[in-house]
């Protein structure tokens, strides 16, 4: 039987680059923490990280760990050029404690048939190019069974 569980792109092929506003996110990921910028003045979250708070224009920023992720939406991608056999589940994850933050990544180690909008996810990290780490997600109850 073929393995139909979802993966990431080949991790060594995944590259990221940063600027001064996005680097704290990736540095935290290296420590296996998922953080998002929250306005230090009015408390509004924004994502991806940008120079100003869109609600009050403040540049004061707190980097807050986010948790309580669930599937906001997803796709099931097969037959990618160069990765014909891989099954990817690109996912948009929302967070109960960080309204407005949508993180795009992969749902890994899932049977695509089990994925549903609203399902809780847990956080994991994959080492990618240049020793950065990519936050990825797993379906929560499947992780509990392991």
């Amino acid at each position: 039987m073929t393995d139909t569980r979802s993966t990431t792109l080949p991790p060594e092929s995944i590259r990221i680059t940063t600027d001064s506003w996005t680097e704290p996110f990736w540095l935290a990921a290296k420590d296996e923490r998922l953080v998002a910028p929250r306005c230090g003045s009015c408390g509004t979250f924004r994502f991806p990280p940008t120079p100003f708070c869109p609600a009050c224009r403040s540049q004061d920023t707190d980097w807050v760990p986010v948790s309580g992720g669930s599937v906001f939406s997803y796709s099931i991608v097969r037959g990618l050029p160069g990765n014909r056999d891989a099954v990817l589940v690109p996912v948009v994850v929302e967070f109960a404690d960080a309204p407005g933050v949508h993180v795009v990544s992969n749902l890994v180690d899932a049977d695509p048939a089990d994925v549903e909008i609203g399902r809780a996810v847990t956080l994991d990290f994959v080492v990618i190019a240049d020793d950065w780490k990519l936050p990825v997600f797993r379906l929560a109850d499947l992780a509990a069974e392991r």
């Binding site: 995944i14 590259r15 940063t18 796709s75």
Partner: peptide
Amino acid sequence: PQNSFLMSSGLV
């Protein structure tokens, strides 16, 4: 820096 939040997912 902006598309680094998108590109890893395979949404090519």
